[in-house]
Design a protein around this nucleic acid. Structure first.
Lengths: 135, 135
DNA sequence: TAAGTGTATTATATCACTTAGTACACTTAA
DNA sequence: TTAAGTGTACTAAGTGATATAATACACTTA
Protein backbone atom coordinates (compact mmCIF):
# COMPACT_ATOMS: atom_id res chain seq x y z
CA UNK A 1 0.00 0.00 0.00
CA UNK A 2 1.38 3.35 -1.10
CA UNK A 3 4.35 1.50 -2.50
CA UNK A 4 6.13 2.98 -5.46
CA UNK A 5 8.82 1.55 -7.68
CA UNK A 6 11.28 3.90 -9.39
CA UNK A 7 13.92 1.99 -11.28
CA UNK A 8 15.62 -0.36 -8.83
CA UNK A 9 14.31 1.61 -5.85
CA UNK A 10 11.14 1.11 -3.87
CA UNK A 11 9.49 3.91 -1.89
CA UNK A 12 6.62 4.20 0.53
CA UNK A 13 6.11 7.81 1.48
CA UNK A 14 3.75 9.04 4.19
CA UNK A 15 3.39 12.11 6.38
CA UNK A 16 5.01 10.76 9.53
CA UNK A 17 8.43 12.27 8.80
CA UNK A 18 10.07 14.91 6.63
CA UNK A 19 9.95 13.81 3.00
CA UNK A 20 13.69 14.15 2.44
CA UNK A 21 14.36 11.90 5.44
CA UNK A 22 12.10 9.19 4.11
CA UNK A 23 13.86 9.25 0.74
CA UNK A 24 17.20 9.19 2.54
CA UNK A 25 16.31 6.25 4.79
CA UNK A 26 14.77 4.20 2.03
CA UNK A 27 17.58 4.70 -0.45
CA UNK A 28 20.11 3.90 2.28
CA UNK A 29 18.19 0.72 2.93
CA UNK A 30 18.10 -0.24 -0.74
CA UNK A 31 21.85 0.27 -1.06
CA UNK A 32 22.66 -1.50 2.21
CA UNK A 33 20.59 -4.51 1.19
CA UNK A 34 21.99 -4.52 -2.33
CA UNK A 35 18.60 -4.04 -3.93
CA UNK A 36 20.32 -1.45 -6.08
CA UNK A 37 23.76 -2.64 -7.15
CA UNK A 38 27.19 -1.06 -6.81
CA UNK A 39 27.84 1.54 -9.49
CA UNK A 40 24.24 1.46 -10.65
CA UNK A 41 22.61 4.66 -11.86
CA UNK A 42 20.10 6.34 -9.56
CA UNK A 43 17.02 8.13 -10.84
CA UNK A 44 17.80 11.74 -11.67
CA UNK A 45 16.74 14.41 -9.21
CA UNK A 46 14.06 15.66 -11.55
CA UNK A 47 12.79 12.20 -12.47
CA UNK A 48 12.46 11.05 -8.87
CA UNK A 49 10.79 14.30 -7.92
CA UNK A 50 8.24 13.79 -10.66
CA UNK A 51 7.62 10.15 -9.77
CA UNK A 52 7.17 10.91 -6.07
CA UNK A 53 5.30 14.13 -6.85
CA UNK A 54 7.68 16.30 -4.85
CA UNK A 55 9.79 19.34 -5.44
CA UNK A 56 13.24 18.69 -6.95
CA UNK A 57 14.78 20.66 -4.10
CA UNK A 58 13.42 18.13 -1.61
CA UNK A 59 14.89 15.22 -3.53
CA UNK A 60 18.19 17.05 -3.89
CA UNK A 61 18.43 17.49 -0.17
CA UNK A 62 18.23 13.72 0.26
CA UNK A 63 20.77 13.18 -2.53
CA UNK A 64 23.20 15.58 -0.88
CA UNK A 65 23.05 13.56 2.32
CA UNK A 66 23.59 10.33 0.43
CA UNK A 67 26.77 11.72 -1.05
CA UNK A 68 27.94 12.89 2.38
CA UNK A 69 27.36 9.32 3.54
CA UNK A 70 29.69 8.21 0.74
CA UNK A 71 26.95 6.02 -0.68
CA UNK A 72 26.61 7.85 -3.99
CA UNK A 73 28.75 9.79 -6.43
CA UNK A 74 27.56 12.56 -8.68
CA UNK A 75 28.86 13.16 -12.18
CA UNK A 76 27.92 16.50 -13.67
CA UNK A 77 25.80 16.11 -16.74
CA UNK A 78 25.53 12.36 -16.26
CA UNK A 79 23.66 11.73 -13.06
CA UNK A 80 23.98 10.17 -9.63
CA UNK A 81 25.44 6.71 -9.17
CA UNK A 82 25.73 4.27 -6.31
CA UNK A 83 29.32 4.03 -5.11
CA UNK A 84 31.39 1.22 -6.61
CA UNK A 85 33.08 0.53 -3.29
CA UNK A 86 31.60 -2.47 -1.50
CA UNK A 87 33.84 -1.57 1.43
CA UNK A 88 32.26 1.83 1.78
CA UNK A 89 28.76 0.39 1.81
CA UNK A 90 29.74 -2.22 4.35
CA UNK A 91 31.32 0.36 6.63
CA UNK A 92 28.34 2.64 6.40
CA UNK A 93 25.95 -0.20 7.16
CA UNK A 94 27.77 -1.34 10.28
CA UNK A 95 28.33 2.20 11.52
CA UNK A 96 24.68 3.12 11.12
CA UNK A 97 23.59 -0.12 12.77
CA UNK A 98 25.88 0.64 15.71
CA UNK A 99 24.36 4.09 16.06
CA UNK A 100 20.86 2.60 16.01
CA UNK A 101 21.79 0.05 18.66
CA UNK A 102 23.38 2.59 20.98
CA UNK A 103 20.39 4.88 20.72
CA UNK A 104 18.03 1.97 21.32
CA UNK A 105 19.94 0.74 24.35
CA UNK A 106 19.85 4.23 25.86
CA UNK A 107 16.09 4.32 25.36
CA UNK A 108 15.62 0.96 27.04
CA UNK A 109 17.89 1.89 29.92
CA UNK A 110 15.78 4.99 30.49
CA UNK A 111 12.89 2.62 31.19
CA UNK A 112 15.01 0.47 33.45
CA UNK A 113 14.99 -2.40 30.96
CA UNK A 114 17.96 -4.77 30.88
CA UNK A 115 19.39 -6.72 27.98
CA UNK A 116 17.82 -9.85 29.45
CA UNK A 117 14.39 -8.21 29.32
CA UNK A 118 14.93 -7.43 25.66
CA UNK A 119 16.05 -10.97 24.87
CA UNK A 120 12.96 -12.34 26.58
CA UNK A 121 10.69 -10.09 24.57
CA UNK A 122 12.31 -10.99 21.26
CA UNK A 123 12.16 -14.70 22.04
CA UNK A 124 8.46 -14.50 22.82
CA UNK A 125 8.01 -12.32 19.77
CA UNK A 126 9.55 -14.79 17.32
CA UNK A 127 7.65 -17.66 18.94
CA UNK A 128 4.42 -15.76 18.36
CA UNK A 129 5.30 -15.30 14.73
CA UNK A 130 5.68 -19.00 13.95
CA UNK A 131 3.65 -19.62 10.82
CA UNK A 132 2.79 -15.96 11.02
CA UNK A 133 3.04 -13.31 8.30
CA UNK A 134 4.99 -14.58 5.30
CA UNK A 135 6.11 -10.98 4.80
CA UNK B 1 26.69 18.45 32.93
CA UNK B 2 23.53 20.45 32.34
CA UNK B 3 21.82 18.28 34.91
CA UNK B 4 19.08 19.78 36.99
CA UNK B 5 17.25 18.43 39.98
CA UNK B 6 13.68 19.57 40.65
CA UNK B 7 12.20 17.79 43.64
CA UNK B 8 12.45 14.08 42.96
CA UNK B 9 12.97 14.63 39.25
CA UNK B 10 16.18 15.01 37.29
CA UNK B 11 16.38 16.82 33.98
CA UNK B 12 18.99 17.38 31.34
CA UNK B 13 17.63 19.66 28.65
CA UNK B 14 19.37 20.40 25.35
CA UNK B 15 18.38 21.60 21.88
CA UNK B 16 18.29 18.22 20.13
CA UNK B 17 14.54 17.79 20.55
CA UNK B 18 11.41 19.79 21.32
CA UNK B 19 11.51 20.92 24.95
CA UNK B 20 8.14 19.44 25.85
CA UNK B 21 9.27 16.04 24.50
CA UNK B 22 12.39 16.06 26.64
CA UNK B 23 10.34 16.82 29.74
CA UNK B 24 7.89 14.10 28.75
CA UNK B 25 10.57 11.46 28.17
CA UNK B 26 12.50 12.25 31.30
CA UNK B 27 9.49 12.31 33.60
CA UNK B 28 8.27 9.04 32.06
CA UNK B 29 11.68 7.59 32.78
CA UNK B 30 11.66 8.80 36.39
CA UNK B 31 8.24 7.29 37.00
CA UNK B 32 9.05 4.03 35.23
CA UNK B 33 12.22 3.59 37.27
CA UNK B 34 10.47 4.56 40.50
CA UNK B 35 12.77 7.52 41.07
CA UNK B 36 9.60 9.41 41.90
CA UNK B 37 7.21 7.28 43.91
CA UNK B 38 3.57 6.34 43.37
CA UNK B 39 1.18 9.09 44.46
CA UNK B 40 4.02 11.54 44.93
CA UNK B 41 3.49 15.21 44.11
CA UNK B 42 5.03 16.56 40.94
CA UNK B 43 6.44 20.09 40.66
CA UNK B 44 3.71 22.54 39.72
CA UNK B 45 3.55 23.75 36.13
CA UNK B 46 4.75 27.19 37.13
CA UNK B 47 7.50 25.94 39.41
CA UNK B 48 8.96 23.56 36.84
CA UNK B 49 8.75 26.21 34.15
CA UNK B 50 10.70 28.59 36.35
CA UNK B 51 13.31 26.00 37.32
CA UNK B 52 13.86 24.94 33.71
CA UNK B 53 13.55 28.52 32.49
CA UNK B 54 10.77 27.73 30.07
CA UNK B 55 7.29 28.98 29.39
CA UNK B 56 4.52 27.42 31.52
CA UNK B 57 2.66 26.50 28.34
CA UNK B 58 5.55 24.30 27.26
CA UNK B 59 5.58 22.45 30.57
CA UNK B 60 1.81 22.10 30.47
CA UNK B 61 1.99 20.42 27.10
CA UNK B 62 4.24 17.75 28.60
CA UNK B 63 1.97 17.39 31.64
CA UNK B 64 -1.06 16.91 29.39
CA UNK B 65 0.67 14.02 27.65
CA UNK B 66 1.64 12.45 30.96
CA UNK B 67 -2.00 12.41 32.00
CA UNK B 68 -3.02 10.88 28.68
CA UNK B 69 -0.43 8.19 29.40
CA UNK B 70 -2.22 7.56 32.69
CA UNK B 71 1.00 8.25 34.59
CA UNK B 72 -0.24 11.33 36.42
CA UNK B 73 -3.46 12.70 37.86
CA UNK B 74 -4.32 16.36 38.21
CA UNK B 75 -6.26 17.79 41.09
CA UNK B 76 -7.52 21.31 40.59
CA UNK B 77 -6.09 23.69 43.07
CA UNK B 78 -3.78 21.04 44.51
CA UNK B 79 -1.36 20.05 41.81
CA UNK B 80 -0.23 17.14 39.69
CA UNK B 81 0.48 13.75 41.23
CA UNK B 82 2.01 10.51 40.03
CA UNK B 83 -0.64 7.83 39.69
CA UNK B 84 -1.10 5.55 42.70
CA UNK B 85 -1.58 2.52 40.51
CA UNK B 86 1.54 0.37 40.24
CA UNK B 87 -0.31 -1.69 37.66
CA UNK B 88 -0.75 1.33 35.41
CA UNK B 89 2.93 2.21 35.57
CA UNK B 90 3.93 -1.36 34.86
CA UNK B 91 1.61 -1.59 31.87
CA UNK B 92 2.85 1.69 30.48
CA UNK B 93 6.47 0.66 30.89
CA UNK B 94 6.10 -2.66 29.09
CA UNK B 95 3.93 -1.17 26.34
CA UNK B 96 6.40 1.62 25.66
CA UNK B 97 9.31 -0.81 25.72
CA UNK B 98 7.48 -2.99 23.21
CA UNK B 99 6.96 -0.02 20.93
CA UNK B 100 10.66 0.89 21.17
CA UNK B 101 11.67 -2.67 20.36
CA UNK B 102 9.36 -3.00 17.38
CA UNK B 103 10.56 0.30 15.97
CA UNK B 104 14.18 -0.70 16.52
CA UNK B 105 13.74 -4.08 14.89
CA UNK B 106 12.17 -2.45 11.84
CA UNK B 107 15.17 -0.10 11.61
CA UNK B 108 17.63 -2.96 11.78
CA UNK B 109 15.71 -5.01 9.25
CA UNK B 110 15.86 -2.07 6.86
CA UNK B 111 19.65 -2.47 7.00
CA UNK B 112 19.42 -6.21 6.48
CA UNK B 113 20.59 -6.87 10.04
CA UNK B 114 19.40 -10.03 11.78
CA UNK B 115 18.80 -10.68 15.47
CA UNK B 116 22.01 -12.69 15.53
CA UNK B 117 23.95 -9.66 14.25
CA UNK B 118 22.50 -7.59 17.06
CA UNK B 119 23.34 -10.19 19.70
CA UNK B 120 26.91 -10.32 18.44
CA UNK B 121 27.26 -6.56 18.65
CA UNK B 122 25.87 -6.37 22.18
CA UNK B 123 28.11 -9.21 23.36
CA UNK B 124 31.18 -7.47 21.99
CA UNK B 125 29.89 -4.21 23.44
CA UNK B 126 29.56 -5.49 27.00
CA UNK B 127 32.90 -7.24 26.76
CA UNK B 128 34.49 -3.93 25.78
CA UNK B 129 32.93 -2.27 28.81
CA UNK B 130 34.44 -4.63 31.36
CA UNK B 131 35.95 -2.42 34.04
CA UNK B 132 34.68 0.46 31.98
CA UNK B 133 32.51 3.40 33.05
CA UNK B 134 31.09 2.83 36.54
CA UNK B 135 28.10 4.94 35.42
C1' DT C 1 -9.11 36.77 51.67
C1' DA C 2 -4.76 35.50 49.71
C1' DA C 3 -1.76 32.34 47.65
C1' DG C 4 -1.06 28.50 44.96
C1' DT C 5 -3.02 25.15 41.89
C1' DG C 6 -4.54 23.66 36.76
C1' DT C 7 -6.63 25.59 32.57
C1' DA C 8 -7.73 28.53 28.61
C1' DT C 9 -7.05 32.09 25.31
C1' DT C 10 -4.82 35.30 22.11
C1' DA C 11 -0.87 37.12 20.02
C1' DT C 12 3.70 36.87 18.39
C1' DA C 13 8.16 34.99 16.84
C1' DT C 14 11.20 31.59 15.03
C1' DC C 15 12.57 27.67 12.59
C1' DA C 16 12.27 23.42 9.68
C1' DC C 17 10.22 21.84 5.81
C1' DT C 18 8.36 22.24 1.30
C1' DT C 19 7.12 24.22 -2.93
C1' DA C 20 7.87 27.29 -6.95
C1' DG C 21 10.41 29.42 -10.40
C1' DT C 22 14.54 30.62 -12.61
C1' DA C 23 19.15 30.23 -14.07
C1' DC C 24 23.79 28.26 -14.94
C1' DA C 25 27.57 24.69 -15.93
C1' DC C 26 28.42 20.36 -17.62
C1' DT C 27 27.85 15.91 -20.54
C1' DT C 28 26.01 13.31 -24.12
C1' DA C 29 24.00 12.40 -28.46
C1' DA C 30 21.73 13.97 -32.69
C1' DT D 1 26.44 23.34 -33.21
C1' DT D 2 22.33 22.23 -31.08
C1' DA D 3 19.14 20.07 -27.99
C1' DA D 4 18.12 17.38 -24.13
C1' DG D 5 19.29 15.71 -19.85
C1' DT D 6 22.28 16.02 -15.92
C1' DG D 7 23.61 18.39 -11.06
C1' DT D 8 23.69 22.89 -8.79
C1' DA D 9 22.50 27.50 -6.97
C1' DC D 10 19.56 31.12 -5.76
C1' DT D 11 15.43 33.82 -4.25
C1' DA D 12 10.77 33.92 -2.74
C1' DA D 13 6.85 32.28 -0.45
C1' DG D 14 3.73 29.40 2.42
C1' DT D 15 2.76 26.11 6.16
C1' DG D 16 3.04 23.92 10.56
C1' DA D 17 5.37 22.82 14.87
C1' DT D 18 7.50 24.86 18.61
C1' DA D 19 8.08 28.29 22.02
C1' DT D 20 7.32 32.56 24.41
C1' DA D 21 4.46 36.27 26.45
C1' DA D 22 0.64 38.12 28.78
C1' DT D 23 -3.71 37.70 30.72
C1' DA D 24 -7.62 35.68 32.84
C1' DC D 25 -10.61 32.22 35.18
C1' DA D 26 -12.02 28.29 38.36
C1' DC D 27 -10.72 25.65 42.07
C1' DT D 28 -8.44 24.35 46.71
C1' DT D 29 -6.20 25.29 50.84
C1' DA D 30 -4.70 27.92 54.71
Amino acid sequence: MNEQQVGALRFHIDFSQPLYEQILDQVRSSIAKGEIGLGEKMPSVRELAQELRMNPNTVMRAYMELERDGLTEKRRGQGTFVTSSAERVKTFRTDLAARYIESFMAQMESLGMTWEDIEDYVRRRSRAEEGGPTS
